[in-house]
Design a protein around this nucleic acid. Structure first.
Lengths: 212, 212
DNA sequence: TTGAATATTCAACATTTGTTGAATATAGTG
DNA sequence: CACTATATTCAACAAATGTTGAATATTCAA
C-alpha cells in the first residue's frame, strides 16, 4: 500500500469536501488544509477551482462507467441466446455502485455522495453527466427496450428517471431514513437499499411499460 | 394583484437563486440585485444569510405541508369505511406538488427545485426536513402501513425512500431526461412524471412489501 | 402637526476568496 | 557531477464576501 502523492491527497480531500458541501461550499484553502498541502499546490496541479472539481468527478466516473459496461456485457453473455431478465439488467446497473460502496476505500463512499450532488444539481448535471455517463446509460436503456417489447420509449425514459432518482437519494446518504424510521433503517446500509431497489424498480417498470 | 413588498421581493429572488445554485452558490448581493433592493435590507429583514435561507424554505413548506395533510384526510374521508387504496395514498402525497407545479406562480416552480436541493443535501436535510416535514410524513407512512398489512416496517421505509428519491430528482428539473431522450420527454412536464410515478411506485410497494 | 416606530440607504469594516509570480527545493537525465 | 524539468513554498494581490452602525426617509398613530 503506497502512500498517496500530494496530488492524490488533494483529489481525495476535495472529493470528501465537495461531496458534503457542494462546489461553492468548499474553499481551496479547506482542501489544502485537509490534504496537508500548500494552498498554491492545488492551482499548480489542477488549474482553476472548476477544473479541480471536474478532475475529481471524472477520476472515478471513468472507472465506474467501465465497470458498469463490463457487468452489463457479462450479464448479456452469460444468458447466451436467452433473453435477459429485467432484473438482470437493473442489477447490472446497480452492482458496480454496490461494490464501490462496500469496498474499504472510503474515497468511493465519498464519491457516491458527490455523484448524487452532480446528478441533482441543475448546473453541474448539464456540464458533467453527458460526457461522463450518457453513452453507457444509453446502452442500458437499449437493453431495457429489448426486454420490454412494445413499451413506449417515453415510458422507459420516465421509469429510468425514477430509478435514477431513487439511486441518487440513496447515494446522498442524508441520514433521513435513519431519523424517520427511528433507527430501523440506516442510510449507510447499501445492501438493504440495493436488495429492495431491484424488485421495487422491476415491478414499477413492468407496470408502467406493459402495453395496455 | 398587489405588488410585492421589498421584503417579499427579497424572498422571491433568494428562492430563485438558492434553488438553482444552492446556499453557498448565492451571495446576498446577487439576491439584492435581483430583488432591486439595497444590500443591507436583506440583513435588516431576515438577519444572517442562514436565517434568510431558512425563511425562504419555511415559507412554502408550511403551505405545502398543510395542503398535503388536507388532501390525505379528504382522501380518507371520501372512502368512508372502505379501506383506501395504495394508489390513493400515493396520489395524495404527490397531488399538492403537482398542483403547485402547475400553478402559474413561478415561485412555486422555483421552490420545487429548492426542496429537491434540501432533500438531497446531507447538511440541509438534517437541519430543515425534520421540523418542516417529518410529522406529516409519518402520517403518510402510517397510512401506508394500514394499506399494506403484514409488511415489515423496514420495507415500507425503504420504499418510501425510493419514492422520495424519484420525487426529488423530478423536482430538481435538471433537464437530463430531455437530453437522454432526445426531447421525447421533458423535465418540465410534471404531468407526465406524476401520472407514471403513481403506478410505478404502487407496483414497487406491492412487490417489496408483500409478505412472501 | 407632533413624535415615535419602522423602513431604507449609504459607507465602511475586517475577512476571506481564488489566483499568480518569484523564489526555492527536489527529482530525473546526460 | 552539472543541467533541466518538475514540484513545492512563500508572500502578496485585487476582488468579493457578510455584516454593521449611523444617517436619512417613510409610515403611522396620537
Amino acid at each position: 500500500m503506497n502512500t498517496p502523492t500530494k496530488s492524490e491527497r488533494i483529489l481525495n480531500a476535495a472529493e470528501e469536501l465537495f461531496a458534503r458541501h457542494g462546489y461553492d461550499g468548499v474553499t481551496i484553502r479547506q482542501i489544502a488544509t485537509k490534504a496537508k498541502v500548500d494552498v498554491a499546490l492545488a492551482s499548480y496541479h489542477f488549474g482553476k477551482k472548476e477544473d479541480l472539481f471536474k478532475a475529481v468527478f471524472r477520476r472515478r466516473a471513468e472507472i465506474l462507467s467501465a465497470s458498469r459496461r463490463e457487468v452489463l456485457l457479462a450479464s448479456q453473455a452469460q444468458s447466451n441466446g436467452e433473453k435477459q431478465t429485467l432484473e438482470q439488467i437493473i442489477e447490472a446497473f446497480l452492482l458496480p455502485l454496490k461494490l464501490a460502496q462496500e469496498s474499504n476505500d472510503p474515497g468511493w463512499r465519498n464519491y457516491m455522495a458527490l455523484l448524487s450532488y452532480v446528478m441533482t444539481s441543475p448546473v453541474w448535471n448539464e456540464i458533467l453527466m453527458p460526457t461522463a455517463f450518457d453513452i453507457h446509460v444509453k446502452e442500458f436503456i437499449d437493453a431495457l427496450e429489448q426486454v420490454l417489447p412494445g413499451a413506449k420509449i417515453e415510458d422507459i425514459h420516465w421509469c429510468y428517471h425514477y430509478v435514477s432518482g431513487a439511486l441518487a437519494l440513496t447515494l446522498a446518504q442524508t441520514g433521513r431514513i435513519d431519523r424517520l424510521s427511528d433507527g430501523a433503517c440506516q442510510s449507510s446500509d447499501f445492501d438493504a437499499a440495493y436488495n429492495r431497489m431491484i424488485p421495487f424498480v422491476a415491478a414499477g417498470f413492468r407496470e408502467v411499460c406493459r402495453g395496455d
